[in-house]
Amino acid sequence: LESDASQPIEIAADQLDLDDNAGTAVYTGDVDMQQGSMQLTAARVEIERNAQGEVSTVTAHGGGGERAYLEQKPAPDEPVAKGWGDTVIYHAAERRVELIDNAELHQARDTFNGAYVEYFLDRRQVQARSDDDGESDQRVRMTLTPRDSE
């Protein structure tokens, strides 16, 4: 939701390691992070904070055959947007999410699959690309559902 950015971040995880000088906190083991309507689950999550202590980027990694997962409700009347990726990076300031490798995004009854999907939480802009160096042939596959046939 619009209000998510101002909500507090709650994180549950098996273990927390702090790396003060880099200002990053590394949670590992069945990590579950909530911020308003956004939820992130992953095997390992690194949270970097800027100088003012605000969260700047959240990098989540899947593990044990599970991809990192992020969901968020873009607007009260719209269905939840869900994203998976071997790596999920959330840029708090830009409200931008990057899903990298085995990326998959379900958004407003469309789905994206591909090597890399970039998604702006508040603006329905999505950018998906297949792997440029082409060693893993993950072309972008979408399913679109025409509006009138809800």
Partner: peptide, 21 residues
């Protein structure tokens, strides 16, 4: 999955700012 559903396969895909794909 339904007769109306559209599947695509491409190198890149993006939502344009006008809502188009």
């Amino acid at each position: 999955d339904t007769p109306q559903q559209i599947r695509t396969d491409s190198a890149e895909a993006a939502y344009g700012d006008d809502g188009g794909t």
